[in-house]
Simulated assay, not measured.
Amino acid sequence: MEKVTLIATATMGLEALVAREVRDLGYEDVEVENGRVTFTADVSAIARVNLWLRTADRIKLKVGEFKAYSFDELFEKTKALPWAEILPPHAEFPVIGRSVKSKLFSVSDCQAIVKKAVVESMKTRYKRGWFDEDGPFYRIEVALLKDVATLTIDTSGTGLHKRGYRYLHNEAPLKETLAAAMIKLTTWDAERPFADPFCGSGTLAIEAAMIGQNIAPGFNRDFASEGWHVVGDQRWRQAREEVEDKANYAQALDITGSDIDHRAVELAQGNAMEAGFGDLLTFKQMQVRDFSHKGSYGIVIGNPPYGERLGERPEVEQMYKDMGEALRRHETWSAYILTSHEGFEELYGKKANKKRKLYNGNIKTDYYQFFGPRPPRD
């Protein structure tokens, strides 16, 4: 198997960012759809995209796609796919499923039929009647949408937002993939100051440090496909060597985080240590109204409380006013704020230059972008 079709799943609204990351890795055959980015590449891409993609949720290997209006059709077309080219005889291969707007609406039945079809396909190839399933893990998914069945195998294992550094978090942690997306949607680069005045468990600051030093987000974790013979140890070794070669650990960074809650500051400091940035990032307890920085042309990125609970709303709205006053004292800075509060601009005291719809979990939010002047060229 030389060429594979991969699907990078994405949170709604981040598909274009994921596609840009895929292209930046050198893969050109890219198709963008709602919730996913599909592309064709050589097998080594399985390792590379798992290690490097910052804004994708997970990477799936596409085995086949076809219309299925009956269980018989689902069984026969699944059986005809080249499962034995991917699955070794001792593979562990559970099947999960979902169905949307399709005649085959019983997910449990679809899962059972796909499982049986894969077993029958492997029986033909391996000439055996029983599979122990005590080897490498291959999670198969059958996804039906408008009677089109897509069969994939998850290459990531744990979702890609699990970077391996955040063992500690607060009650509503910002997902690492969304944090990376928020940074990628700004004009920040490693030469400019970066500040998060609502740091929580430190995710934005840590993701910024990884971006600033070109450290692959998956460098510190394992993936389901590391044990797959179709990828092989050598390709994984080469991909990890590339990660190490491209990291710029010497890049100086000016990244600070602050929070009104001292417990959040302690969490952020602990996570920064776990990520290897303990001496590089600065966290301190501070209210947003006291925010100050001596640097110029910096970037503020924040995910403040939204005031979703009725009792919190007056306090949150006052905080938004304080934020606007504090950031207006930094005339050369740009600010990027994520919130679901529809009256944010009025409270902040300024109309955003641009807004973008993003989803923080199940919460529909706006990403308010206030552009400061560009730094002068050298």
Rank of each mutant, 00 (worst) to 15 (best):
A209W: 04
G212A: 11
W228P: 03
D259S: 06
L61N: 11
G26Q: 05
Q285C: 04
R54T: 08
L160V: 03
D29E: 13
R166S: 02
F137H: 11
E317C: 03
Q287Y: 01
A47P: 15
V43R: 08
R329M: 12
K350Q: 14
K175P: 01
E317T: 15
G200V: 04
F371N: 10
Q285Y: 04
A252G: 04
F131K: 13
E226M: 11
L74V: 03
W83Y: 01
K355E: 04
D322W: 05
I86Y: 11
T186Q: 01
H229W: 12
F93E: 04
G218F: 01
R221S: 08
T9D: 10
T365C: 15
E171L: 06
G129M: 09
F344A: 09
A195Q: 07
D42S: 12
A117R: 00
V142L: 07
E241W: 00
T5L: 08
F344R: 00
F39E: 06
K351R: 05
R36L: 09
V142N: 02
G343V: 10
N220F: 05
E308R: 06
H330V: 11
E191N: 11
N362V: 13
S340I: 04
K123W: 02
E2S: 13
A335D: 03
L74D: 00
W52P: 13
T339K: 00
E21W: 09
E226Y: 01
R240P: 03
H262D: 11
C110V: 13
E241D: 07
E31M: 00
G372P: 01
T124V: 03
K364M: 14
T282S: 06
M210P: 10
I86V: 14
H229D: 14
G295Q: 02
S121N: 10
L310H: 09
E65P: 04
A335S: 13
V118S: 11
E346V: 07
E76A: 09
V63W: 12
G164Y: 09
T256I: 14
K62H: 13
D147V: 12
D134G: 04
K62N: 05
G200D: 15
A335R: 02
F39L: 07
H293C: 05
R263E: 15
Y367F: 15
R58I: 00
T256Y: 00
V22G: 07
Y306V: 06
I211P: 14
D259F: 03
K79L: 15
R125V: 12
L174N: 00
H90F: 09
S258W: 01
S334Y: 03
Q251T: 05
G324V: 03
E73S: 12
A172I: 06
L81R: 14
I215Y: 08
I260P: 00
D322T: 13
L281E: 06
T9P: 00
G97L: 02
H161V: 07
D29H: 13
D147I: 10
L358S: 01
T155L: 00
T38S: 14
Y367N: 06
L281P: 11
Q111P: 12
G97K: 09
R125S: 04
A252C: 08
T332N: 00
E15G: 09
H90E: 12
G302I: 00
E191T: 10
D279Q: 08
